[in-house]
Amino acid sequence: MSVNVTLNNGIEMPALGFGVFQTPPETTSASVAEALSVGYRLIDTAASYFNESEVGEGIRRSGLDRSEVFVETKIWISDYGYDETLHAFDKSAGKLGINQIDLLLLHQPVPTDFARTVSAYKALEALLADGKVRAIGISNFMPTMLDRLLEQTDVVPAVNQVEVHPYFTQRDVQAANAEHGILTQAWSPMGGITSYRDDSSRSTFTDPVIGEIASAHGKTPAQVMLRWHLQEGRSAIPKSVKPERIAANFNVFDFELTEDQVSAIDALDTGVRGGPEPESVTMEAFHRDIPEA
């Protein structure tokens, strides 16, 4: 069983997806095939993860028809610019082994070179018009950056993929997305990124509030957090390379959190970001060469 959400252009997308951030290429194919066998139908990758080819291999290994799998990937900032982004689509589609990408995102805004960011998004608009992608969106765009983008482009993004977990909810970003009919998609949806902080003594996985809710439902803290996202109307893309966790993370459709439990999780927000500050992203500091194949 899965649950779909309808994007602002009418395309249906699974709400719960499988992510492959930091999944080594040598284990990506098996992980993707395992996820699809469990029931996932949305796979999220990115050019800068350097595992798109293996994602494509995993999809083919699953034996599922291409139409049954929703493929999402992201253009890295090194390939921003109109012509560069059109070529970046060709690179990603070629690695994935598909002709059409279901959802294509800009991975980061570049505040110091926003004109190039806008040109990249206009290339996404052209790809959408040509039918090469079914939906387009953005990632890590804060409200001011979103406003700047909307002022200079025609197609409202379908998705904004941002860091959201119980310790960092970004309510202002979620509100701005909702105002424009943009779906918020959570990366690091269970707060795994918090383990990389200097002070990693607090973990969402051992949080007593989440643990108590999990016990009440006979579920794991991870399952509770994913259920929290779904009940609040977000998409979430958990990752794992362990078959038992891949399966457990998908087993979140047979219980429901109470309003009080949802509110209790909401109240855990610390306001502390785990990932890079979007305003700090520059071409110089974050450049990565994205190979042709």
Rank of each mutant, 00 (worst) to 15 (best):
L128Q: 14
G81V: 01
P109Q: 07
F141W: 04
P166T: 00
R148D: 11
S92C: 08
G58T: 06
A176T: 00
P189C: 00
G131F: 14
G275Q: 13
L128Y: 15
T85F: 09
P189Q: 04
V55W: 04
F70Q: 04
D147M: 01
Y121G: 01
I265W: 13
P189W: 07
A216C: 09
T169R: 12
A46R: 04
R245V: 00
E292V: 10
Y82T: 00
T220W: 12
R245H: 11
K239W: 04
H287G: 01
S280G: 06
T27S: 14
F253Q: 04
A176G: 02
N8K: 11
T27I: 10
D289E: 15
L86H: 05
F253E: 04
T6S: 13
G39L: 05
D44C: 03
A247K: 15
N4R: 09
D172M: 02
S29N: 04
L127D: 07
G131C: 11
T206Q: 04
F114K: 01
P189S: 01
M145E: 11
G10R: 13
M1R: 14
G131V: 10
M145I: 01
L146N: 00
P111A: 05
S37H: 11
I237E: 08
A15C: 10
T258V: 08
D260A: 13
Q223Y: 12
I182A: 02
E54S: 07
D83Y: 03
T144Y: 03
D154S: 13
V162M: 11
P291S: 08
I101N: 06
I136K: 01
E279Y: 08
Y196A: 12
N249R: 09
A47I: 00
S2Q: 14
L96W: 12
V281H: 10
L36N: 03
M283S: 08
L103Y: 03
S119P: 01
S92A: 15
V69A: 09
Q22F: 13
E84P: 01
L103S: 07
K122R: 15
G275D: 14
T258G: 12
T73Y: 08
R61C: 01
T206F: 05
L128P: 04
S235N: 07
T28M: 08
S240M: 07
G94N: 12
V118S: 04
I210N: 07
N140H: 09
L42W: 07
K91I: 11
A176Q: 02
S263I: 03
S215T: 14
V5R: 15
A186E: 09
A176D: 02
I75F: 05
H229C: 07
T153A: 07
S201Q: 07
S53N: 05
P109F: 05
F18T: 02
F70T: 01
E292A: 13
E84A: 14
D198E: 14
M1C: 09
N99Q: 15
I43V: 15
I237P: 05
S203P: 06
A175D: 14
A35V: 03
F168A: 03
R61K: 15
T258K: 08
N140C: 05
L16C: 08
V20C: 10
L103A: 02
W76F: 02
Q170V: 03
V156N: 02
T85P: 06
E84S: 14
T144E: 11
A285C: 05
A47G: 03
S139L: 06
R273A: 13
H217T: 11
V69M: 11
T45V: 14
Q223G: 09
S48L: 12
V55C: 05
S235D: 03
S195R: 12
I246C: 08
